[in-house]
């Protein structure tokens, strides 16, 4: 076989990619089309209705709540997961040697569990009367400090975010730990010879070099913050009231519970646009970096 012959595996790969391309992007396209039509309920029509479904989103009070909650996830959940992940990674790095593999497994475990399982578990921990968290608070501070984690609309979203940070920080710590390991030994030794303290070593030498790792974790977290669904569906179902609704949950409710498919399609398209506007710049940025 000469170097010009094509690997048959490559052909199959390309063929299946082409098929997948059709089924994924074709269906995304169909979903977008649906959002602009005069379809009603389960009746599909291809007569165009313009932006009617998007105008509907503008006047849907729950849409505004959901959008706000997605933004809250972005502003609290992402920095929280990155911050905690960084802290864990540094601690793991310092501890080094023995226990590292064990701790790494322990930290990654939450991320490998299904959201449905962890959400049910958190529901127990957040239980007002018997939950482990309120039991601890009562033991430490007294009854007055019990918090109605999931029953108070002013608290519930923060409870969701706290639990999500727990679930994701193991993953981010692993990403950052890999980043820390990739810092050249020579730089670290040089800093040590210059008399840098451990704190200085991390803040001045190592963490500044983690930028690409933080960026990639950021994009993953961002996409999750936008499409978050199952964890919230199980933990609060958007409640109390509508206080923990997010866009994906709203889309599911409107499309499948109220059989408003075109409106569901419009919400999906809005969500898709938001995700794309995060992912595409990242891909462009990282491909440009590779070219360098």
């Amino acid at each position: 076989m000469g170097s010009h012959s094509l690997n048959p595996l490559a052909i199959i790969l390309i063929a299946s990619l082409a098929t997948a391309f059709f089924f994924i992007y074709g269906l995304i396209g169909w979903n977008m089309l649906l959002s602009f039509t005069k379809s009603m309920g389960l009746i599909t029509s291809y007569e165009l209705a313009g932006l009617a479904q998007y105008v509907k989103a503008g006047s849907d009070a729950v849409f505004h709540v959901s959008l706000k909650n997605n933004l809250m996830l972005i502003t609290l959940f992402i920095p929280g997961s990155i911050g905690l992940g960084l802290l864990l990674a540094v601690l793991l790095d310092i501890a080094g040697g023995k226990g590292e593999a064990l701790y790494r497994t322990i930290y990654l475990l939450p991320f490998s569990l299904s959201f449905v399982i962890t959400a049910s578990m958190w529901a127990w921990m957040y239980n007002y009367s018997y939950g482990v968290i309120n039991t601890l608070l009562t033991a430490l501070l007294g009854r007055a400090f019990q918090i109605n984690w999931l029953g108070d609309p002013n608290v519930a979203l923060y409870s969701v975010i706290l639990a999500l940070i727990w679930q994701f920080s193991g993953y981010t710590s692993l990403v950052f730990l890999a980043g820390i390991k990739s810092v050249p030994e020579s730089q670290i030794n040089a800093a040590k010879i210059d008399g840098a303290s451990t704190l200085q070593l991390y803040t001045k030498i190592i963490i500044p070099q983690l930028k690409p790792w933080i960026l990639s974790a950021f994009v993953v977290l961002m996409v999750f913050a936008l499409k978050a669904f199952d964890f919230i569906y199980v933990l609060t179902n958007g409640g109390p009231g509508v206080s923990t609704y997010v866009l994906a949950l709203l889309m599911f409710r409107r499309a499948f519970f109220e059989t408003d498919f075109p409106y569901g399609a419009a919400l999906a398209t809005i969500l898709f646009t938001m995700v794309i506007s995060v992912v595409v710049p990242y891909l462009l940025l990282s491909s440009r970096r590779e070219e360098k």
């Binding site: 109605n148 409640g239 109390p240 009231g241 509508v242 409710r253």
Partner: peptide, 16 residues
């Protein structure tokens, strides 16, 4: 269905 869905949200909001 639309009312039933809203009714769930209203009841849940009222409980708190």
């Amino acid at each position: 269905e639309k009312f039933a869905s809203a009714f769930n949200d209203i009841s849940s909001a009222f409980a708190s």
